[in-house]
């Protein structure tokens, strides 16, 4: 049990921030030292160099674009696919959780697709969609849709039956039970799914851009590899990390706002 009064100089919240900063700075220092003073320096450029190049990438273009534009292109791809995945994932998840018939029809198909890693679809996607953006949407969609579906499905399955009973007793129709009880009560689950999915989608975009593309952060990395530019690879990785971190935090902030009723699991 954390006793808030024992440590009077900093609040728990401040302590968390302080430790986070220490941990990040520590990582950079270790990286720098390893890169400078061990044999790893052949493959691992020092942190300072990578960070400098990263900063430069916002003004000097890599290929046709600066870093901001590469990130923008990648984000756009994720966004489009993510929206489709969200709509289809929620519909499929709630449907399977609420209706036994729906579950019987779609669950086997879904369970078959679920374990296939999104990158395994890439060859097929190239055959089907060529090298257009559609193929990338397809891969990213597959990368995030399963998480949304599974979580939504869990949520819809776990609606307190007493809440459904209470709504029926108050005169709610089946449709009202679905939209006013089952759906909102699954929202915290859906958000958990979206949070995993957005990160997974972000990983998938990098993968799909690495295969064939001439823009986007994935391309920055693969381009760095083919030109033997380790610094550029690392710059791409840093960008991916930062954006991924930001996305995860934005969704969880959104969740806190929208699901404040769920803050403490009351009765």
């Amino acid at each position: 049990m954390i006793d808030s009064t024992t440590n009077s100089r900093f609040s728990t919240k401040q302590l968390i921030v302080i430790y986070t900063i220490i941990s990040l700075v520590g990582l950079l220092i270790v990286w720098e030292l390893v890169a400078r003073f061990t044999s790893a320096s052949m493959f691992l450029p020092p942190a300072s160099e990578v960070l400098a190049a990263f900063a430069r990438s916002f003004v000097e273009p890599i290929g046709q674009h600066t870093m901001l534009a590469h990130v923008g292109v990648s984000l756009y791809r994720v966004a489009v696919a993510f929206i489709f995945a969200t709509i289809i994932g929620i519909a499929l998840g709630v449907g399977m959780g609420y209706s036994k018939l729906f579950e019987a029809i779609f669950k086997p198909i879904f369970e078959f697709i679920r374990p296939i890693p999104p990158l395994a679809w890439i060859p097929l996607s190239i055959l089907w969609f060529g090298l257009s953006d559609t193929g990338k949407f397809f891969i990213i969609f597959l990368g995030c849709f399963c998480f949304i579906t599974v979580n939504t499905y869990d949520g819809a399955k776990n609606v307190d039956p007493e809440l459904i009973g209470a709504a029926r007793m108050l005169g709610a129709s089946e449709k009202q039970v679905f939209f006013k009880i089952v759906l909102p009560s699954s929202v915290p689950y859906i958000f958990a799914g979206l949070q995993i999915a957005v990160t997974a989608g972000w990983s998938a975009v990098v993968g799909s851009e690495m295969i064939q593309s001439n823009e986007g952060v994935g391309w920055v990395i693969i381009r760095g590899m083919s030109t033997g530019n380790t610094v550029q690879i690392m710059v791409g990785i840093v960008a991916i990390g930062i954006v991924g971190f930001a996305l995860a935090n934005i969704t969880s902030a959104l969740e806190r706002r929208l699901c404040s009723w769920n803050a403490q699991k009351g009765m």
Partner: peptide
Amino acid sequence: TKPAPERGFVYQKTSLFPWM
């Protein structure tokens, strides 16, 4: 044969809709 609003129900767990 089925639930109806003519019969009101009060639960032990209250079963309030937490998002409302």
